[in-house]
């Protein structure tokens, strides 16, 4: 009797504790977003999106920053997706499941957790110095591709592993080769999971600043990048730069740029969630 009551009380207590914890996070986020919106929403207009940086806050815009982010996003995707997906396929379908395989698996998972600034140092040495890309879009995209490669590989492997073996057996049983089975059955069945991983990793890349600072990307770039070997800046760097300026006008600019960056990442995460839900619904063998 007593113990039942005690358990009940503990139960209720944890219920409220859980609600409180959840609310804490949500409220903080809401306050932050409201603040940013109040500061910045009025600043977003056509001029803001199409202007080059300037010393005068009211004339400054994010044209170089958002085009740089678009470049980086595209180039990173081009480098990271084929490499990551191919590596994931190899490790899961062809690689031997022996000790070496386990070591590789653990290391890739660990690489996904390495601080991004370390990748920046790696990029600085390899892409900027040894390969002489300079502080260009190429160097930035390759660095970010390295950064998100582990995430894509892990996501690909998990998605492939979730494909039931009965599907593989059915394909092999029909006389399909290994590659035909992977191409016609495994990859389509795993595509939702792979795509989700890709989008989430790219949305991480979009928000990264540290590795790009390390490779020498500039906050002030007076022109829009035209080739992958041009210098560049990206939204987070522009924001970082503006928030460190004394004039109030730049704080407002930063808030406006943050809104743009948030919208971009929310859209990308939204697409990822949509794909994941659709995929989960479809995968019922």
């Amino acid at each position: 009797m007593n113990s039942i009551r005690k358990n009940r009380i503990t139960d209720t207590l944890f219920n409220y504790l859980g609600i409180a914890s959840t609310m804490f996070g949500l409220i903080m986020l809401a306050i932050f977003i409201t603040n940013i919106l109040i500061d910045g929403i009025a600043r977003i207009d056509w001029q803001f999106l199409t202007s080059l940086p300037s010393r005068k806050p009211e004339r400054a815009g994010i044209l170089t920053a958002w085009t740089g982010t678009a470049w980086i996003l595209g180039l990173t995707a081009v480098f990271a997706i084929p490499l990551g997906v191919a590596a994931g396929i190899y490790l899961e379908e062809y690689g031997k499941k022996n000790k070496l395989g386990t070591i590789i698996e653990i290391n890739i998972t660990n690489l996904a957790g390495v601080p991004s600034i370390i990748y920046g140092l790696l990029g600085l040495e390899i892409f900027v110095r040894i390969l002489h890309f300079g502080a260009s879009l190429m160097a930035g995209a390759f660095t970010l591709a390295l950064l998100i490669l582990p995430i894509i590989i892990v996501a690909t492997r998990e998605a492939i592993r979730a494909v039931p073996s009965s599907l593989r057996e059915a394909s092999f049983g029909m006389g399909a080769t290994k590659w035909q089975t992977i191409w016609h059955q495994v990859l389509p069945a795993a595509s939702g999971g792979i795509l989700t991983g890709i989008i989430l990793s790219l949305s991480r890349a979009v928000g990264e600043t540290a590795p790009l600072i390390v490779i020498g990307a500039l906050a002030y770039v007076p022109f829009v990048a035209k080739t992958p070997l041009d210098e560049f800046t990206v939204l987070p760097m522009q924001i970082f730069n503006w928030t460190s300026r004394p004039q109030h006008g730049f704080i407002i600019n930063a808030a406006a740029a943050i809104i743009i960056l948030l919208v971009l990442t929310f859209i990308m995460n939204g697409i990822a969630i949509y794909l994941r839900n659709r995929w989960q619904k479809r995968v019922k063998w």
């Binding site: 009965s166 599907l167 059915a170």
Partner: peptide, 16 residues
């Protein structure tokens, strides 16, 4: 060989 010797499994496993 598998085109000559087909197989049907325990659990129906049509392709999606």
């Amino acid at each position: 060989l598998r085109q000559r010797v087909g197989i049907v499994f325990q659990k129906p496993n049509p392709f999606p």
